[in-house]
Design a protein around this nucleic acid. Structure first.
Length: 774
DNA sequence: CAGTGAGCGAGCTTCCGCTTGACTT
């Protein structure tokens, strides 16, 4: 029997803390929240003051049973969850779910995982802060009400299985509106003029690059300037030197880690989190879900020691960073290596690269500024009033640049060149090598990437470190947005070049508007956003979260009662939901494409029950309408009549094999070949429009071969089989599947073995997938 | 999983924030 039971949120944290506390303390983890609102009836008694109905989350039943038993035996229970709104609620739910007696329960908090911090915390216990818990309940209830009232509205008015919520719907709105802005953007062009000069010094020749600070609006003006240059002399008019400095960025939070890993390592947001989790569980970095840029005293001391040791005293500068993001709750430190003297760590390449990034960012944040010298050189053109400007930058002292430079999102317009300038002096004449005017177009606002969307959400105070990655995957899973495939289009631009006294014009080509890997809205995403904006602009408001957060703070400070706050929100909201349910039109996004050349009937593109589709004929006509789904890269907004007609050519017979038709078509899971009642998916490289009979037969044979290898073992008179599946061998019995223990060879299994495995796993509840009837 | 877009009508979908394994065929 243990004297003290300490409960924290994460098992990795529990392991570390247990080492500090000695044998009188048992440290266990709750694995986050243990209770949540019940699934059915919204989990809220609306007519009873919005009383929440809580139940133990199904996946936490085991944990709760175990903790309950341990708590009963312990003399004292220490609830040590995070010191923020959610952490306080976790402590309260634990107290409720474990039925803890108040006199033996203590609430403690600590910000650093060090022996001192933890023993200090134990010396200063307090009770549970009920007001903070109320603020969390308000947050939870509001999110449930919004999500569970708006989603069914979408099922009725747009398409089943859709979802809406305080966070996800605004995230989609950002992407939809950005796409709109891009569509409306009219690029303007101007001519940028640059020059290359020769500088002679000490018998050597150097190049000096310069640029005109003004741009010419037309080709004529640019050409006129180049003509003047042809007859001009050039000389240095002015040299201006200015000291400059650069400072390091703050240590990583979840959001900045995701951004930097996306830019520097090309990691998706979810990959960054997965790798960071692995590093955390190996004890290599601190907690990876945080909104704080704060480093503990211990870490700052470690950093200083390491910097002085490796780079020298003058590279060290102790810095404290203030967290600037809205709604930050700062329950953790910034993300940093646990031990800064570990310059590299990780058990695979991805882990090593992410660790390296974290180490460098942390160390750099405690290093000196870089000192620069910026030089501005003005160059006179004898026949024109315009002056060229050359810019140079020298690093006088590298400081933190020695280890790390934060990357910026690329900007198509920044073409500035900076570097070391050749030796020059005022009044010095220059030899012109060439002058070039290039047509440049203004660019529309950039599409969001996963990481830049996270950045924007954080700026708006929407979502939390633990939800950024899941939110991004939700809006893609619901097919509101997708990662772009479009490569962009070619655009012609004009160049005019003066060299060796001759002016030559030339047209060149460039790619523009690529959406590759960027987030673009789908038809569904755009229409749902449009719908929600029309009826629920208050919830779609970018400041909605900030507004309710303010009220949650008031609840936490005892200035407001949580259920009154919810009541004043719910009444008008719910009325609007009811009203919209009754009066609003179904959202179809219908667009008339033209008429069918064969039948003369109308052809539409619109949203159907299963997504975007095209339709021949109207419902009212005698002949039933025909339907076909849109392909993955097609959109209601852009599809043409010709493309629509193509879609109606399927299913198409492309040949025959073994006396039966080989048919190709497109189903719910993409293009497939059908033969003798069996379906085979097309491979990525196959094109449905041009696939040949031979290739289709090849695919059919490939599938048959795979099916033959599926059977490892079967037993007579028993409905038990050992099969080969996507995740290795498994046992199939009466349409249910059972896992084979890792240490067992599937080929050696006997009927008795299988029965035993089935029986043993029978105690666990199976989450059987629902089957759709044919 | 493999043919739908709909008043025969069952029952289902859904939120945000904490946390990791369990689980998918």
């Amino acid at each position: 029997m243990v004297k003290n039971l300490v409960i924290v949120e994460s098992p990795a944290k529990a392991k570390t803390i247990e080492k500090f506390l000695g044998k009188d303390y048992l440290v266990k983890s709750s694995y986050g929240h243990v209770r949540d609102l019940a699934k059915k009836n919204q989990g809220i008694e609306i007519d009873n003051g919005f009383k929440p109905v809580y139940e133990i989350s199904p996946d936490k039943k085991k944990v709760v049973t175990e903790l309950k038993k341990l708590a009963k035996e312990a003399e004292t229970v220490w609830l040590a969850s995070d010191e923020d709104r959610e952490g306080e609620a976790i402590a309260w739910h634990l107290a409720e779910a474990l039925k803890l007696k108040q006199e033996k329960t203590h609430r403690i908090v600590f910000h650093e995982i060090t022996k001192n911090a933890i023993t200090d915390a134990i010396k200063n216990p307090r009770g549970i802060d009920e007001k903070l818990v109320d603020a969390q309940q308000a947050r939870r209830v509001l999110d449930r009400l919004v999500g569970f009232e708006l989603s069914p509205l979408l099922w009725r008015k747009v398409k089943p299985s859709l979802s809406a919520g305080r966070v996800q719907s605004v995230a989609v709105r950002l992407i939809v509106e950005r796409e709109q802005a891009i569509k409306e953007f009219k690029p303007e062009s101007s001519f940028r003029v640059s020059a290359i000069f020769f500088v002679e010094d000490d018998g050597k020749s150097y190049e000096l690059m310069a640029e005109l600070p003004v741009r010419f609006s037309s080709e004529e003006n640019a050409k006129a300037f180049l003509e003047k240059c042809a007859d001009s002399d050039f000389s240095i008019a002015e040299i201006e030197k200015k000291p400059g400095k650069k400072s390091p960025a703050a240590p990583f939070t979840t959001s900045t880690l995701q951004q930097d890993a996306s830019r520097k390592l090309s990691f998706s947001v979810s990959k960054t989190m997965l790798i960071a989790q692995q590093l955390y569980e190996s004890g290599l970095i601190t907690y990876m879900r945080t909104d704080s840029t704060n480093l503990s005293k211990l870490a700052i001391g470690m950093a200083k020691k390491e910097i002085v040791k490796v780079f020298g005293e003058k590279y060290s500068k102790t810095r404290q960073y203030a967290t600037k993001s809205k709604g930050a709750q700062e329950a953790h430190e910034a993300i940093r290596p646990t031990y800064l003297n570990n310059h590299s760590a990780g058990s695979n390449n991805d882990q090593k690269r992410l660790y390296d990034l974290i180490w460098k960012r942390t160390i750099a944040s405690q290093m000196s500024d870089a000192a620069l010298e910026r030089t501005n050189v003005k160059i006179d053109v004898s026949k024109a009033k315009e002056q060229f400007i050359a810019k140079g930058e020298i690093i006088k002292f590298d400081g933190f640049l020695k280890v790390y430079l934060e990357s910026k999102d690329e900007d198509e317009n920044s073409e500035e060149q900076k570097g070391v300038l050749p030796p020059i002096k005022k009044g010095q004449p220059l030899t012109m090598s060439e002058v070039e005017a290039v047509q440049r177009f203004s660019s529309p606002p950039p599409r969001y990437t996963e990481a830049s969307l996270v950045k924007k959400l954080e700026e708006l105070g929407i979502g939390r470190p633990s939800t950024y990655a899941p939110t991004i995957s939700t809006i893609q899973k619901r097919q509101y947005v997708e990662r772009g495939m479009h490569e962009g289009v070619e655009r012609q631009y004009q160049t005019i070049r003066l060299k060796d006294g001759q002016i030559k014009a030339q047209k060149k080509k460039e790619k523009t508007g690529s959406a590759k890997g960027k987030l673009v809205p789908t038809d569904i995403g755009s229409l749902v956003t449009q719908f929600l904006m029309e009826y629920f602009d208050n919830i779609m408001d970018y400041n909605f979260t900030a507004k309710v957060e303010k009220e949650f703070d008031e609840i936490a400070n005892g200035l407001k009662e949580w259920n009154r706050m919810i009541k004043s929100f719910y009444k008008p909201f719910h009325d609007k939901v009811e009203d919209t349910m009754e009066t609003s039109e179904r959202v179809k996004g219908e667009r008339l494409l033209g008429t069918d050349p064969k039948s003369g009937r109308n052809i539409y593109a619109r949203i159907g029950r299963y997504g975007p589709m095209v339709q021949i004929g109207d419902k009212e006509e005698d002949e039933k309408p025909q339907f076909a789904s849109l392909r993955k890269n097609q959109s209601i907004e852009t599809i043409t009549l010709e493309e629509a007609l193509e879609l109606f050519k399927f299913p198409k017979t492309i040949g025959s094999y073994e006396g039966e038709d080989v048919v190709v078509s497109v189903g719910r899971f993409g293009p497939y070949v059908k033969h003798k009642g069996k379906f085979v998916s097309l491979k990525k490289e196959d094109d449905i429009n041009s696939i040949t009979e031979e290739r289709a037969i090849e695919l059919i044979e490939e599938k048959r071969e795979k099916d033959r290898n599926k059977y490892i073992k079967s037993f007579e008179d028993e409905d038990i089989q050992v099969l080969n599946g996507r995740w290795g061998p498994y046992i199939s019995h009466k349409k249910k599947n059972f896992k084979i223990p890792k240490d067992v060879d599937a080929k050696e299994l006997t009927l008795e073995d299988c029965k035993k495995i089935i029986k043993e796993s029978g105690t666990k509840k199976k989450t059987t997938r629902k089957k759709k009837s044919k």
